[in-house]
Simulated scan of single mutants.
Amino acid sequence: MFLFTVVKFISDIQPRNFTDDSKFLLLGLAEDAELQCLLFMLFLIMYLVTVLGNLLIVLAVSSDSHLYTPMYFFLSILSITDICLSTTTIPNMLVNIQAQNKSISYTGCICQIFFVLLFSGFEIFLLAAMAYDRYVAICHPLRYTVIMNPCFCGLMILLSLSISIAVALLHSLMVLHLSFCTELKIPQFFCELAQVLKLACSSTFINNILIYLVAFTLGGLPFSGTMFSYTQIISSVLRIRSACGKHKAFSTCGSHLSVVFLFYGTSFGVYISSLFSHSSISTAVASVMYIVVPQMINPFIYSLRNRDIKVSLAKLIGRIPSF
């Protein structure tokens, strides 16, 4: 509500060459009516699986006192973030398909840009925090409870969220300074910052500089921290003599490492696709791979590879009364 008020206030005082009731058109993934019906069912199922899967992870962690550890605290926050990120884009797409209306308001588009940047940026920081947690657990096990105390974990979450909000708000407000042409068609199913900037008639030089600056600093630092943590983890595990000890050490971080590869792999794939493909359909499909797929698969990765989560989920499902 705060962002909506700020965007509305600034948009009222910023001159643009189109009226306030002008709308962006989200072209989506297909034009064919039958294919759109299929996409509606597909994305509805994906969204329900994402929400249900991540919600079960949150409930499993919160209902089992044995999982009250930093590792599972970060995991529950990650699951909530995945739900929020999916909710930012998919429901609007489903409504547009059902209503046969591809438009989204100017203010709504800016708000969507903000929340997509917020939750995707926050997820990057969360993955780095989870990697650091595994680094301390494996490389400094005797000091784990001292280093990863509740106050420090809460501070990491608060700092990560604050930085993500600041970056997302900065990008969103910078878009408000742009003037747009009359052709407001976005080859996406949501308002993606890079696609919106391509529609601007005014110079986007500062916006692009800001994107690269943020990507290399706030994006590069968490990624570097994640890679450093796993470099140290692998080095420590290789020094363990027993095969059982190595397996146990790798099993504690295998799920998170899979999520890291999935998130950064799909994001990198989208970047490569945008460089070498000029097809709007290819761009939209590539965006699905990082804005929808990882959030849906993450609960399965953790539930299938993590024994504690599987036990907790079994207890949770066992408590549900049958009718």
Rank of each mutant, 00 (worst) to 15 (best):
I234G: 07
Y290R: 05
V175E: 05
S277L: 14
A286I: 06
L199N: 07
T252F: 03
I209Q: 09
F205L: 14
E192P: 03
L218E: 10
V260L: 11
S172Y: 07
L262W: 06
Q195C: 11
T252N: 07
G219Y: 02
Y212K: 08
Y264F: 13
S224Q: 05
F276M: 07
S280Y: 12
A284G: 03
I281V: 11
Y264L: 02
S258N: 04
F223A: 15
S242Y: 04
M174N: 08
N306H: 09
F205A: 13
S277A: 12
D308I: 00
A284W: 00
S267I: 08
L199I: 03
I234V: 15
C244P: 00
G219K: 04
I233R: 01
S251P: 00
F268T: 14
V214F: 01
L218F: 15
S277P: 00
R305N: 12
V175G: 00
V259H: 06
F205D: 15
A215K: 03
G245P: 05
A284P: 02
K185H: 10
L304N: 08
L176G: 02
F268E: 13
P294L: 03
V288S: 09
R241W: 08
L193P: 01
L169G: 06
S277D: 12
C181V: 11
F223N: 04
F223W: 11
S280K: 12
F180S: 08
I240F: 09
V293P: 02
C244W: 04
L170T: 10
Q295M: 09
S303R: 07
N306K: 04
S274P: 04
P222G: 08
A249I: 01
I211M: 11
Q232K: 15
Q195T: 10
E183H: 14
L275T: 08
Y302R: 06
E183D: 15
A249F: 01
Q195F: 10
F300C: 12
P294K: 05
S229N: 06
N207P: 06
L218A: 14
N306F: 01
I281A: 06
S255E: 05
M227L: 15
S279E: 12
V260F: 12
S280E: 15
C191H: 05
T226D: 08
R239M: 11
V237W: 03
S236Q: 14
L173Q: 08
F250T: 09
G265A: 02
Y230R: 07
S258Y: 10
I209P: 00
L193S: 03
K185N: 14
I301D: 00
L257A: 11
P294T: 08
R239W: 02
A215D: 12
S172Q: 04
N306S: 15
S258M: 11
G265E: 06
N208Q: 14
L197I: 05
Q232Y: 12
I301G: 00
F263P: 04
A243Q: 08
S279I: 11
V237Q: 10
S287Q: 10
L178N: 03
A200Q: 01
Y212V: 08
E192S: 13
P294N: 01
S274T: 12
